[in-house]
Amino acid sequence: MYGAFFFGNLGAKHTIMINKVVADADVAIADITDGKTLMLGGFGLCGIPENCIKSLVKKGVKELTCISNNAGVDDFGIGLMLQGKQVKKMVASYVGENAEFERQLLSGELEVELIPQGTLATRCLAAGYGMPAIFTPAGVGTEVAEGKEVRNFKGKDYLMEYAFDADFAIVKAWKGDTAGNLIFRSTSRNFNPIMAMAGKITIAEVEELVEVGELDPDHIHTPGIYVHRIFQGKDYEKRIEQRTVRSKA
């Protein structure tokens, strides 16, 4: 019976027809309204969803909670949203490159939760894997542990940290297909695949959008089941924070 069902109803189409393509960043983020919680992929400025950030700045949504490893620099990335005072709360692990961020934090305009980078990553993973919480030794005995449950396993203390609960995850991939399958390039992968798994709604912008069938199933990093909207990004700046080189001499 299974064989009959499969070949009769699905096999006949021969192709996955689910199509998650939207026109552009403005359309992709159209239902992001004030007060929402967003996850934004990237490490520093590497692999950030440039197109969606520009659209969020243009749209001017406010009171956002942003979960991202870093907060951009003053004039790029999430820094642009900070300039527009669009962010109410920032959840990040390292924010050292952003003077406006530091100013808003010290003046009390911006609420900030600094958390260990591995905790940030694993709370994304937990959300994408359907697990409510994780246990990590990171932060035990420090101010990060304040108010958190500590459990001892095999003689070592661990903090219980909850899976993230984000309304939207916004990620940037190198290639994607119309069904939302994603491939990342080099270290711009970073938080992108795990955030893609963690959003209630996941938006992916890609450098190259292709038809289904063009990506090798063995090479896909993020299965399209996690991705709700995908679009072909444009005008990527890909700024470099620390340009370090050696001479050929």
Partner: peptide, 28 residues
């Protein structure tokens, strides 16, 4: 110089290179 790749950085956000046998993975 001239071969920097914005997609390839280290944890200090410096441009770097890979080596034969290098491997890339996600933050988790």
């Amino acid at each position: 110089e001239g071969e920097e790749d914005a997609d390839l950085i280290n944890a200090g956000k410096q441009t770097i290179t890979t080596l034969p046998g290098s491997v890339i993975f996600d933050s988790a």
